[in-house]
Structures are given as C-alpha cells and as structure tokens.
Amino acid sequence: MISQRTRRLAVLAALPTAALFTVGVSSPAFAESDTPAFQLDLEQLNDSGSKGTALVSLRGDRMTVWIKSEGMVPGQPSAQHLHGSTEGHNFVCPDGSADTNKDGILDNTEATVHYGDINIALTVSGDTDAATSGLAVDRMPVADADGKISYKRTIKVGQDVVEKIKDLHIVQHGIDRNGNGEYDFDGAGKSELDPKLPQEATAPTNCGEVKGASVGSVPVGGIETGGGAEGSGMSPGMTAGATGAASAAVAGALFALRRRKASGASAARTGGAA
C-alpha cells in the first residue's frame, strides 16, 4: 500500500476553481468563483472506463461539491459518496489488487477496506446521512444517454469534515460488466451487500482522492480498514431495517427506470406502426 500513498500530490487549495478544472473531463467549467477548493481526479475501478473530475470547496460549514464524470452506465443511477475518516485515519483509493477473492470484480466490500466507510451520501436532494441515504439510489444522479453525470450541490457539514476534508475521497458506483446498458444479474451476479440487488449496481466505478491528502492526517497503524468490510460496506451504519429500506429504494429505482425504457420503446413501436 506504500506505493498508493506516494502517488498523492501537493494540495491545490487556494487556487481559483477555473484553474482546477482544466483537466480531467471534456467539460471543465464547474464554477466561476474564485473560492478556494480541493480537486479530486476520479480514476476508473473495475476497468469501467469511467473518469471524471470533482471539486470540493468549503465556506464556513457549507461544502459545495461539483462532479463531472463520463463513462458511466447511460440512463442508470449512480450512488456516490464521500468515503473516508474524519478521525485521523488513513485511507486510499484501491487498485486491482484489492480484489481479494480473485473473481475479477472489485466489489464494494473489498474496496471499503481501502477507501473507508461512507461519510456523506452525495444525493441530489434530501438528506445526505450515510445511514439513511447511502443507498438512496432514487435520489442519486442518473447518467445521461452519453454516460455523463454533471452534479453540483451545497451541503451543510460538521466541523470534523471541514478540518479533515483532505482525508476523504469521492467514489461513484455502478458498472456494466456485460455491456447490455443496464444493471442486471447476468453481468456480475448478486451484490454482496444484498442478494436481491445486482453486483453491477453497487460495485465502485471510480474513485478520487483529494490532492494533497498526503499532507493531511498521519496514518494510524498503517492503512485503516473500513468497518464495512464485515458488513454492508456501502452504508455500514445502517440497521437491518434501514438496509432493507435502502435495498427496496434501489430495486424500486431500477424497476422504474426499466419501466420507463419499456414504455418509451412501446411508444416508438406504436408510432412506427401508425
């Protein structure tokens, strides 16, 4: 894991946001202000082909998150979070060696050992609590027809996040292993988080570390392991009831998307016949 730490770069705080977003994605303009910010370059996991750039800025207890990513599964929701620790522990984005069961899929439980538990759920609306919204896929961004996501939200955060922002990472989830354009069980089997869900819906697709994290907190006992490694991983603070509700939300969101696609196809056929 030492090599992963040494890849971290110098902090880019206090640079204008316009300068920060000249790399990473084809559409660099996230913001026009000169608010000091931290950049995260999102790099693919699971050979997903996904990449992106994120910006996190802090003003008092308000955190604004911009994300632009591409290579996502078109028309499918992407769970996304700030992962990591605000207690001085050290986490990193994983690489292929984190696939400990050697099944060819880096699942979320394996990855959580490296990038840590959810700290904030980056929903488009509603609360952002890890326990209640970690799997709230119905409130997560949906990739457009080209597989792109553009996200911006300002969230009230605690002082621990403000002080330890360099220790947190952004992770987006959702892969299309069999290339059929949707999350299903044929691509990668069942999710280790819930057998009712496809692995494709919960596996991480990319991860980005705050640049300059190496000058953040000192590692405590080496690479810390996320509590989710033995539990849900995606949202380790959930009770059994909350996990069930979150699973239902995921299933409901996927079902709604499939119905919408089916309705559109039916309408197209009817129009063509007429």
Score class of each variant (00 low, 15 high):
residue 83 H to V: 01
residue 226 G to H: 12
residue 181 G to K: 14
residue 238 M to P: 15
residue 163 E to T: 05
residue 171 V to K: 07
residue 133 S to T: 05
residue 103 D to L: 08
residue 55 L to P: 04
residue 130 A to S: 08
residue 50 S to L: 02
residue 224 E to S: 13
residue 118 I to P: 04
residue 213 A to N: 12
residue 230 E to N: 11
residue 252 G to N: 07
residue 252 G to S: 09
residue 135 L to A: 14
residue 246 A to L: 09
residue 139 R to W: 03
residue 30 F to S: 13
residue 207 C to L: 10
residue 178 N to F: 10
residue 267 A to K: 13
residue 46 N to Y: 09
residue 96 G to I: 12
residue 25 V to S: 14
residue 174 G to F: 01
residue 13 A to E: 02
residue 84 G to R: 00
residue 57 S to F: 04
residue 26 S to V: 00
residue 133 S to H: 06
residue 137 V to C: 12
residue 143 A to C: 14
residue 171 V to G: 03
residue 80 Q to G: 15
residue 166 K to M: 13
residue 124 V to M: 12
residue 190 K to W: 01
residue 137 V to Q: 14
residue 222 G to T: 02
residue 132 T to E: 14
residue 269 R to S: 01
residue 161 V to T: 12
residue 269 R to Q: 09
residue 185 F to N: 04
residue 213 A to K: 15
residue 44 Q to M: 11
residue 32 E to F: 12
residue 60 G to D: 06
residue 243 T to Y: 06
residue 187 G to K: 07
residue 236 P to R: 00
residue 172 Q to Y: 01
residue 177 R to L: 00
residue 252 G to A: 10
residue 78 S to E: 15
residue 116 G to T: 06
residue 129 D to L: 01
residue 164 K to P: 05
residue 170 I to H: 04
residue 49 G to Q: 00
residue 111 A to C: 10
residue 47 D to L: 12
residue 1 M to S: 11
residue 273 A to T: 15
residue 228 G to E: 06
residue 8 R to P: 00
residue 268 A to L: 12
residue 83 H to N: 14
residue 98 A to V: 07
residue 22 T to W: 07
residue 51 K to C: 06
residue 226 G to C: 11
residue 160 D to K: 15
residue 261 K to G: 11
residue 173 H to M: 11
residue 24 G to L: 10
residue 216 G to P: 14
residue 271 G to N: 11
residue 151 Y to A: 05
residue 119 N to I: 01
residue 14 A to W: 00
residue 16 P to I: 04
residue 170 I to Q: 04
residue 97 S to L: 09
residue 109 T to C: 05
residue 138 D to Y: 07
residue 29 A to Q: 03
residue 75 G to V: 09
residue 8 R to Q: 13
residue 7 R to V: 15
residue 270 T to E: 15
residue 141 P to T: 09
residue 85 S to Q: 01
residue 253 A to N: 08
residue 151 Y to Q: 05
residue 253 A to S: 06
residue 161 V to Q: 07
residue 131 A to R: 00
residue 54 A to H: 06
residue 208 G to I: 02
residue 223 I to W: 07
residue 203 A to F: 00
residue 127 D to M: 05
residue 89 H to K: 05
residue 44 Q to C: 03
residue 227 G to S: 12
residue 25 V to C: 11
residue 107 D to F: 10
residue 133 S to N: 11
residue 133 S to V: 00
residue 55 L to G: 00
residue 21 F to A: 13
residue 72 M to D: 15
residue 9 L to F: 10
residue 15 L to D: 11
residue 126 G to S: 03
residue 128 T to A: 06
residue 58 L to P: 02
residue 208 G to Y: 04
residue 201 A to L: 08
residue 86 T to L: 05
residue 140 M to K: 10
residue 234 M to W: 01
residue 103 D to P: 14
residue 267 A to S: 14
residue 237 G to A: 10
residue 141 P to Q: 13
residue 10 A to I: 07
residue 94 P to R: 02
residue 93 C to Y: 02
residue 192 E to H: 13
residue 39 Q to M: 13
residue 51 K to T: 09
residue 183 Y to R: 02
residue 11 V to A: 15
residue 212 G to S: 03
residue 55 L to I: 15
residue 63 M to G: 07
residue 18 A to C: 04
residue 126 G to N: 03
residue 118 I to T: 12
residue 152 K to C: 10
residue 159 Q to S: 15
residue 227 G to I: 12
residue 224 E to N: 11
residue 24 G to S: 11
residue 27 S to D: 00
residue 187 G to M: 03
residue 200 E to K: 07
residue 12 L to R: 08
